[in-house]
Design a protein around this nucleic acid. Structure first.
Ligand code: FE
Ligand code: FE
Length: 908
DNA sequence: AATAAAAAAAAA
């Protein structure tokens, strides 16, 4: 936007003295509190917040108080005053009668920045003082126009400039120098966040009434009460507890070492713990967090996980922990997109279950949740502190000084992974101890967590020095491993488990037969496909071939509505999950088959005997194999876990098409063909594998860059490799471009421009129902679970929203758009932010209607959502005829040849 | 042209 350059009017405008400038309207829209008082309230609140900071943040906190004292200086301006208090202004000075507010600049944040740049003394006149930047951004985002002159007409001329200057000088004498310069953007964001939070609290009329505080109350006391009522006073941690006292069991070596090594390092930093599951990484991290908090080095924690479900689970585990370490029974705050729905799933909440302390409700708005002393949530909540989104710096302030624990780091892709690495290094600048928990990482990814992406060689040296041995070969890097900024520590590995590996190509029919054979031999078989369509085809083939009711079989993937997926997961948790003592042990079936997609790679704690899996990158294969022999169990039907990896042979192909066909076109959309090929080459050499002993070797070998060779295969691989690298770099670049630091000007809402995850196949969520009775603005919906709910275009009903959320499925948008434009029916508008069309399901025919048209989707409770008009996935035509392996599976041929890593696909 | 799973949303 460009401002009109107004001609010089006859004389200078008369300014209203700053003492008569208002900051806020009261409930009736009348002028409320004046600017000067609001500034004092905000500064005093900031002073109280400053007392809550950990020691390493106090210097920055000292700068926030003067910043807060001038944040709304831009309200001393004709534009702002006329916009909100026109009548009162005209009463004071009639010359404003014919001046509309639009004649001036009205954005007080922008005006404030002009004034501060003009009136704050600085060494470098071309550098925008930090306070000015903070004033500019204090409402969440910054305008992109250049700052006009403070004494210019848009801001009311010299007289108004003088008023702002006077108020600035008064505040500066009272609250401290404004001349500081903070070069670190993260540290500036921290101060900004602290100012904005002070502003939010200082603007709360229940603490600071519009009529002003009663004379007997001093501002400092009111601020103290406000901060404490908001629940921002840091809870006292009970010192001196041993690991046993906190968790009621004795620690493994690694659990002792980890916390001790961090305490010994003594400074903020990134600390990585790589260990297999079952070694108690969570407790190791929590105990480290306890030590750091008890010593006062950090205050509070944030525990970040990849999914909402895993966050919920950790959240439940934290209550006993907090009860042990914290005197005043502060519960942990759950923070993710649908955390608020939990209130309607768990009735205990209504009775105040975790709402121990008053003030908890202050944290309800999502942006504030991170300010709570103890937070568990999706990483995404924390990542929004580094993304170019509105109010990102409020989250930065929320995380500052905390122990930030980030779990399951191995599970993120290049986009989110890059964001996490950046955030980790930034957090160390604002007093955080960052704890990274992961299964094995490649040396490259590990090194990336240390000072500006440490060279891999340097990290290797640290590891080898620490272990006092020479580490020339990747084999000898130990696992589990603790890595800190300048140190490394090995820990004795758990006893290894030998796996038998088969790498084969099979038709669907043979796969089904094979699985059935194993199940009949009493084995619990897990089949993991790379795509939903393949999983469904396997499921059909197995159902058709198996003897009636011989053993339980099931299918699990994400194309089920939430309630059904949860039901299937619960059922299989009873069958294959961990059982307490002898309870349920007899529920483990005597042979069974569960067919699934990647949903079981994580967080579903099932234990299989035999695994059949499509070829996937080594990291994923290892995750999938982690589902075998997972629990301690006697009486298994087999002595050793066996894994059958399904994969065609690309080695003889002399062109790209041949290679892609060998891996399966669909698989190449999910995983980069180069990685699949490397994985196959690495795994085909092994008939057995020892886990965890061989993990590092397998992983490093997969991603190792090979020396030049001149065979046809090497050349094809080389092409695929450069595409893989290009794609990886594109993801990283995309992430870097979305950082708040990428441009000086954060703009946009949280979800708009910058996402925490990247997807190149956009999806739309749909609500699946059996019946609708609608009058337009109101409707009665019959859900798949047979429940009936009333929905209404005007009345929100969180309990119903919670129910509806369990009936959603996400579907690629382009598949839905074939049936017309997608819209949320008006009666659902109060329930979903996102566009949410309705799919109408006919139970007896399984058919699905959208926008009144019959679609090619069908749904059943056993198979989930599937398409009927699509040619069945590769190999299915041979599913019911016995083939010799000579007649190899036919892969999709009706697509014209296309490169799955075609540049256009990632030319964002 | 077509692939898993996953997340996201009130201020002063
Ligand atoms: Fe403001
Ligand atoms: Fe304000």
């Amino acid at each position: 936007m460009i401002f009109p350059i107004s001609k010089k009017t006859k004389g200078e405008l008369t300014a209203i003295p700053y003492t008569k400038c208002y900051a806020k309207t009261d409930k009736n829209g009348k002028p409320g509190i004046c600017v000067e008082s609001h500034l004092r309230h905000t500064a005093e609140v900031c002073r109280i917040l400053r007392q809550q900071l950990t020691e390493n943040l106090t210097l920055l906190g000292d700068l926030a108080i003067p910043s807060a004292s001038v944040h709304d200086i831009g309200k001393v301006s004709p534009g702002f005053q006329l916009k909100y208090f026109r009548d009162a202004i005209i009463k004071q000075i009639s010359e404003y009668r014919d001046k509309p507010a639009g004649h001036f600049l009205t954005d007080h944040a922008h005006i404030g920045a002009c004034a501060l740049w003009a009136h704050v003394n600085k060494e470098d006149p071309f550098q925008c003082p930090t306070v000015a930047q903070i004033a500019a951004m204090h409402h969440g985002s910054v305008r992109t126009e250049p700052l006009p002159k403070d004494s210019g007409e848009l801001l009311g001329g010299a007289a108004w400039s003088e008023e702002r200057k006077n108020l600035i000088k008064i505040m500066e004498t009272e609250y401290g120098r404004l001349t500081f310069h903070v070069p670190s953007i993260v540290q500036r964001d921290f101060i900004s966040g602290m100012v904005t939070i002070s502003d939010w609290i200082g603007s709360d009329e229940s603490f600071f009434p519009p009529a002003g505080l009663p004379p007997e109350v001093n501002i400092n006391t009111a601020a103290q009460m406000a901060v404490s009522a908001c629940g921002l006073i840091k809870p006292a941690i009970i010192p001196g507890l041993s690991f046993e006292e906190v968790f009621e069991f004795s620690p493994y070596d690694i659990q002792k070492q980890f916390g001790a090594s961090i305490m010994n390092y003594g400074k903020p930093g990134v600390f990585v713990l790589e260990a297999p599951m079952g070694m108690g990484k969570t407790e190791a991290a929590l105990y480290a967090a306890y030590l750091l908090m008890a010593s006062g080095k950090n205050s509070g924690f944030f525990f970040g996980l990849p999914t909402r479900l895993t966050s919920d689970r950790i959240h439940e585990r934290l209550d006993p922990f907090l009860k042990k370490i914290c005197e005043n029974k502060t519960g942990a705050r759950l923070s993710h997109g649908t955390a608020w729905l939990k209130a309607f799933w768990h009735s205990s909440f209504e009775k105040g279950g975790e709402d121990f302390k008053p003030g908890n409700s202050w944290f309800n708005p999502r942006k504030r949740a991170l300010l709570h002393p103890f937070v568990v949530g999706t990483v995404d909540q924390a990542l929004m502190s580094v993304l170019r989104v509105k109010h990102h710096f409020v989250r930065t302030f929320g995380l500052a000084g905390k122990v930030v624990i980030l779990d399951e780091i191995h599970s993120y892709d290049g986009y989110t992974g890059t964001l996490i690495e950046t955030m980790a290094s930034q957090l160390t600048q604002i007093g955080c101890s960052v704890i990274i928990l992961s299964a094995t990482l490649t040396k490259k990814r590990l090194s990336a967590f240390f000072k500006e992406s440490q060279p891999v060689k340097e990290r290797e040296n640290i590891i080898s020095q620490a272990l006092d041995e020479s580490f020339n070969s990747i084999d000898s890097v130990p696992y589990p491993l603790i890595s800190g900024p300048e140190y490394a520590l090995a820990s004795p590995p758990p006893k290894g488990q030998e796996y038998k590996i088969h790498l084969e190509e099979m038709s669907y029919f043979k796969i089904a037969k094979h699985a059935i054979d194993k199940a009949i031999q009493s084995q619990c078989v897990l089949c993991i496909a790379n795509t939903v369509a393949t999983a469904q085809t396997w499921f059909d083939a197995i159902s058709a071939e198996m003897p009636d009711d011989a053993f339980p079989i099931g299918l699990l993937h994400s194309k089920f509505p939430g309630f059904q997926r949860a039901a299937i997961e619960d059922l299989w948790m009873i069958r294959l999950g961990k059982h307490k003592k002898d309870e349920h042990e007899n529920l483990r079936p005597n042979g069974c088959i569960l067919v699934a997609t990647q949903v079981v790679e994580q967080s579903v704690d099932i234990d299989a005997d035999y695994l059949i899996t499509e070829l996937a990158p080594t990291d994923m294969l290892l995750q999938r194999m982690g589902r075998q022999f997972r629990h301690d169990r006697k009486n298994r039907p087999c002595t050793i876990p066996e894994t059958l990896i399904l994969c065609g042979n690309p080695d003889q192909s002399d062109n790209l098409d041949g290679v892609l066909d060998a891996f399966g076109r669909s698989n190449c959309h999910v995983y980069a063909p180069w990685v699949l090929w490397r994985t196959r080459d690495v795994w085909k050499k092994h008939h057995t594998v020892n886990i965890p002993d061989d993990i590092r070797t397998l992983l490093e070998a997969t991603y190792e860059e090979l020396s030049k060779q001149f065979s046809k295969k090497a050349q094809l691989m080389d092409d695929l490799h450069s595409k893989f690298v290009q794609h990886k770099n594109a993801l990283a670049d995309k992430a870097m471009g979305n950082l708040s630091t990428a441009t000086a000007m954060p703009v946009g809402e949280d979800h708009e421009t910058c996402a925490t995850r990247y997807s190149d196949l956009p999806t739309t969520q749909v609500l699946l129902v059996q019946d609708i009775n609608s009058t337009g603005n109101e409707a009665q919906l019959t859900l798949l679970s047979e429940e009936r709910v009333m929905v209404n275009a005007v009345r929100p009903d969180p309990a119903v929203t919670a129910q509806l959320h369990l009936n959603l499925i996400s579907i690629p948008s382009w598949l839905l758009q074939r049936y017309g434009s997608l819209e949320t029916p008006s009666f659902l508008k109060k329930h979903f932010f996102e566009t949410t069309p309705i799919l109408l399901w006919n139970e007896s025919s399984a058919e699905i209607t959208l926008n009144g048209q019959l679609t090619d989707f069908q749904y059943t409770n056993l198979k989930g959502l599937f398409r009927t008009s699509v040619p069945e996935p590769p190999g299915s035509n041979s599913a019911y005829q016995e083939d010799d392996s000579e007649d190899i599976t036919v892969y999709l041929t009706d697509f014209e040849s296309m490169d799955p890593f075609d540049k256009s696909k990632f030319d964002w």
